[in-house]
Nucleic acid binder design. Structure first.
Length: 465
DNA sequence: TGGGGTTAT
DNA sequence: ATAACCC
């Protein structure tokens, strides 16, 4: 789609380096030792306006029109047609309509299709390398270090296009084909291009990618050329990249709270943070946060790409202007629960903990949620896979106990959010092979009346006895 | 400001 | 159970 990128970026994919007497390319003996944390190749993949893309795939008539995805009174994301006309992410619906009267809005409060597409993307990336970390629904990190090593070993020096960068190079820095770090990152850019091609061909999705030596830099560089392009960061340009940030709040890992505390110390730019006294910073923020963010300010980030695997929790939430009675709350909780039970059923694993979260109305107190959680009674857990309507009633009872534990229903109350979360997910049974529990399985409906401790033998693998 | 997620304390 | 972070 962007065949001219490499040239446009001013990079010069030139001739191959000199060869060793044995006929192998010079870099074959320069491989960085495996397990060395010093030089990784990381890609950050970031889908373009993800919810809007999913909506345009669902309904192709929306393509070409300015489209916004609405949750309550917010346009949470929009396509590029809408952005050209002045619509921004997280813009008020009123402001968006005012800016752009032709704006088409679709409701995006039900995340089901987004979540499903999100996992398809992660699974596609896992085919390249299993080390994929999700960040939200629309971003993934992949550690390409091993894949790059394998391609380097396979690489024959007589392939003319073998050492050509794919996509942009940050700062138009030229690639040194005699620098092994450059070569490795360049291979990473080729893999990133293949990933984006696969996403488009197999899922119909476009996105950006950033390739760099750690997650922080990969993430920062992926956003440099914006829709549907990719950018490679070479080590010599990393300081330019981090100093291109206008404020420390743009540094991933430095959030709202930390930004406020840093500003109170007179720190607002990346360089302010780099040069600030480590001792004082540790005293103010604690040693852990202080050391981590100060390293970030230099572009250093040794955090690994942690494979996300299946989700750790499932939750459904709903926000509203006002909920002030127990009956109202119960109805909302039943709705949330019904959706959750479907999701848990599809997943196959069983949650062992349930949590209820509320947000109370308060005039100005920005952000404050309260929660109560408890173990899910084992008799409910066992019925979870099957007909979901026998679990509805007992689960609602459990949730309403949590509710009354948090909210004094004899006093007036005003809630603006309810959320139900299933977590502590375990594979169907936690029994290990070789133990008695492995051969016994709790009996289900047939004996449920006669006693809660009855078991029947599993009908497989009995020969192992 | 939505409807999700994660990890650390 | 909360608080911080991410989208």
């Amino acid at each position: 789609m962007e065949r001219a990128e490499a040239r446009a970026a001013g990079s010069s994919p030139g001739a191959l380096g000199p060869e060793e007497p044995g006929g192998l390319p010079w870099f074959h003996d320069q491989v960085v030792p495996a397990g060395s944390s010093s030089s990784r190749v990381i890609v950050h993949v970031d889908l373009d306006c993800f919810y809007a893309q999913v909506e345009m795939i669902s309904n192709p008539e929306l393509k070409g029109k300015p489209l916004g995805v609405q949750q309550k009174c917010l346009v949470v994301t929009c396509n590029y047609e809408a952005r050209k006309l002045g619509v921004k992410k997280l813009m008020n619906v009123r402001d968006a309509k005012e800016k752009c009267p032709q704006l088409v809005l679709v409701n995006g409060e039900d995340l089901t299709r987004y979540r499903e597409m999100s996992y398809k993307v992660t699974e596609l990336l896992e085919e390249f390398s299993p080390v994929v970390e999700r960040l939200g629904f629309d971003e993934n990190f992949v550690d390409l270090t091993e894949m790059v090593e394998k391609r380097l070993e396979q690489l024959q020096s007589d392939e003319p296009s073998a050492l050509t960068v794919s996509g942009h190079v940050y700062g138009n820095q030229s690639i040194n084909l005699h620098d092994i770090l450059h070569i490795r990152l360049l291979i990473g850019s080729q893999i990133a291009a293949e990933m984006r091609e696969a996403m488009y061909n197999q899922l119909g999705l476009t996105g950006c990618a950033g390739v760099a030596s750690n997650k922080l830099l990969a993430k920062l560089v992926s956003g440099i050329f914006k829709p549907n392009q990719q950018t490679l960061l070479l080590p010599e340009s990393s300081q330019d990249l981090i100093h291109s940030l206008n404020h420390i709040k743009e540094m991933p890992g430095i959030g709202y709270k930390t930004t406020k505390r840093l500003e109170a110390l007179g720190i607002s730019s990346v360089r302010d943070l780099q040069t600030f006294s480590s001792k004082i910073l540790e005293r103010e923020l604690g040693i852990s946060v202080a050391q981590r963010i100060q390293k970030l300010s230099f572009g250093e980030d040794n955090s690994p790409v942690t494979p996300s695997g299946p989700p750790q929790s499932f939750s459904e939430e709903d926000s509203f202007k006002k909920c002030s009675s127990e009956v109202e709350a119960k109805n909302k909780i039943e709705e949330l629960l019904a959706s959750l039970l479907n999701r848990v059923c599809q997943d196959g694993r069983k949650p062992h903990t349930v949590r209820l979260i509320i947000r109370r109305y308060s005039s100005e107190k920005h952000y404050s949620r309260e929660s109560r959680q408890c173990p899910i009674p084992s008799h409910i857990i066992q019925k979870l896979g099957t007909g979901n309507y026998e679990v509805m009633t007992p689960m609602v009872d459990v949730l309403m106990k949590l509710f009354r534990n948090m909210v004094n229903v004899k006093m007036p109350f005003h809630l603006t959010l309810l959320s139900v979360c299933f977590c502590n997910l375990k594979a169907l049974n936690t029994a290990k092979k070789g133990t008695i529990d492995y051969y016994l399985t709790p009996s289900l409906s047939t004996t449920s009346r006669s006693g809660k401790h009855s078991f029947k033998m599993k009908d497989t693998h009995m020969e192992e006895f």
